[in-house]
Design a protein around this nucleic acid. Structure first.
Lengths: 206, 206
DNA sequence: GTCTATATGCGGATAGAC
DNA sequence: GTCTATCCGCATATAGAC
């Protein structure tokens, strides 16, 4: 089962660098140094490759979403966000080419939708906990909207960062995205966590 | 110059519905009921079609960004946002396939980047005005971050909406996006504009 | 499991006649 | 301006030998 893994490894590398659409299965085969025929022995279709890569991503994010260790300080949550966004960054091709995948690969599409809903639920719950422990003050409506914005930012920020000119893009990318997510909480935070946020800002902006 | 316009019209329709990558120039020619050769008489390359469509989009957004009529109430700003997002919706293929266009069509890419920066500048200025007229209270740092989030939301929301299940998607799409943008101001608004925001919310959510 | 060879189809784009 | 015919290249996928 070694070749199979090398195919996946090469695929994610190429997809991230050049986009799913531009990378042909032949390219992948060349990169792995096997024949196209051999590649199709391991993965019948290109979609199958993408699907398995997406499963890997799920394997990294789902546990973070399901972890219901107590969430009492902003810092606890920050860690989860950071790890999630690192995973997203490692599989960024998914988020660069979201629409393409949704249209072209139906089986991947359903998995994407499932993961997004799962994220929404968990983030809502986690923010609720933060509110209950006094880290921030927000109404239920606020929390609902916050969760949506947060998942939205996690999902699309990398794409947007690519539109911006280099100065913003050349930051450590997952870190900046994480700060961007966290800053959404800014207006709702109590004094002490607000200072922590400010400290993080100094680390990631400019 | 009639055929030329029919080509552009058919292109934007097909691009929006199926994505730039899936729509071949032959498809467009068929739709317009001309020959492929004829299409290439009017537009040497596919990129040229995309570029001209993007110019049309610019023609609708740039004036809104440059309009420096006084911006004293939240409602003034709301109108600008709404019109911009309507334009974005009419050319939504650009935003669905952002990464694809950035990679595949360099001339379009520079235009996209230019428009994004232009939006950032203008939104920053407009939010500054709103703050100065007392519609909201926000520090310079807040304003900077707000502008970024607002342009980000305008740019990527439609894509994200496609990931969510239908209930959220089946809303009047540009209206929902506009509310989503506006809601970012929520925490910073004074009492009266906050009520106006709440009224808008009732129009666009659920 | 891995290779070579190949089928099949489509996409963008051009040539040249009308 | 518009057409027909065609080139060229690539991508996905398969067949069958080793």
């Amino acid at each position: 089962m070694r070749t199979r893994d090398r195919i996946l490894e090469a695929s994610v590398k190429l997809f991230n660098a050049e986009g799913v659409a531009r990378v042909s299965t032949n390219r992948i085969a060349t990169e792995v140094d096997i024949s196209p025929g051999n590649l199709h022995y391991h993965f019948k279709t290109k979609e199958e490759i993408v699907e398995w890569l997406f499963r890997h991503l799920e394997g990294r994010i789902d546990p973070l979403l399901d972890d219901d260790a107590p969430m009492r300080a902003l810092d606890d949550w920050w860690l989860h966000v950071h790890l999630s966004l690192e995973a997203i960054y490692d599989y960024r091709f998914v988020f660069y080419d979201l629409e393409y995948l949704l249209r072209e690969y139906p089986r991947v599409a359903t998995r994407i939708r499932r993961l997004t809903l799962h994220s929404l639920q968990s983030v809502r719950r986690q923010c609720g906990e933060l509110a209950r422990s006094g880290v921030m003050r927000a109404s239920d409506e606020d929390l609902e909207m916050l969760a949506l914005h947060i998942v939205f930012t996690g999902t699309c920020w990398l794409t947007f960062a690519n539109v911006l000119p280099d100065p913003t893009r050349s930051q450590p990318p997952s870190g900046l995205a994480a700060y961007q997510v966290l800053s959404l909480l800014g207006p709702y935070l109590a004094d002490e966590p607000a200072h922590y946020l400010h400290y993080l800002r100094s680390k990631y902006v400019r």
